[in-house]
Amino acid sequence: MINKEPVITVKNMVKKFGTFVANDNLNFEVYKGEIFGFIGANGAGKTTAIRILCGLSTPTSGEMNVAGYDIYHQTEKIKKNIGYMSQKFSLYEDLTIAENIRFFGGVYGMKITERKARTEEMLERLDLMAFKNRKIGDLPLGWKQKLAFSIAILHNPKIVFLDEPTGGVDPITRRQFWNLIYEAVQKGITVFVTTHYMDEAEYCDRVSIMSEGQIVALDTPENLKKQYNAINMDEVFLKIAR
């Protein structure tokens, strides 16, 4: 199913904040069309790594390539080809759903007809057509998260980075959220997701488990479960963490 064509290549990624090493020599590749999970406890260095790959933070050292572009010199080209959904909810709460879509679609340079068609399709899918002129701030968190994701992939990026996208939402909404992720993958978008929910790790094609700034395991959930003789990812994680 995966043709092993790398869309993200990371070699010896190091990020230090003073003497604290947040990312200690990370090496991995993400293949086109897969769901790549970054699993780890809070403070393991997941967010730092994702911020570097999105161009929000500069690494201390290492070679990184995202969507075919070098992370040091072609940051702006990378930005055209990725979507990002941060841990902190970051659509404009004082703007309506439609206004947020218009703005983000606009700054990614989408054609107006294309934007309108995709907006329509997206709001139908999320069942939010009737709420199009509601301010984002008035919506429940679960809806906001689904909207933030849908807007992050509105411009049809090659890769979408999701930083703990389902934090604080109920299990049903999380399930729905993952359905949206699968649909994005169907469209050919590569998904890079961080989470600390172990059931979500099961939904990934491959997961890398981070601990104290290092990648301690990287494989498919099946292989990891076999390797650690565990019945689920939760057990794998506990065995590695111990």
Partner: peptide, 14 residues
Amino acid sequence: ELGTIEQINVTPIK
């Protein structure tokens, strides 16, 4: 403060 600048910073806005 709101964090929306992060979302701006990942876009190709100059």
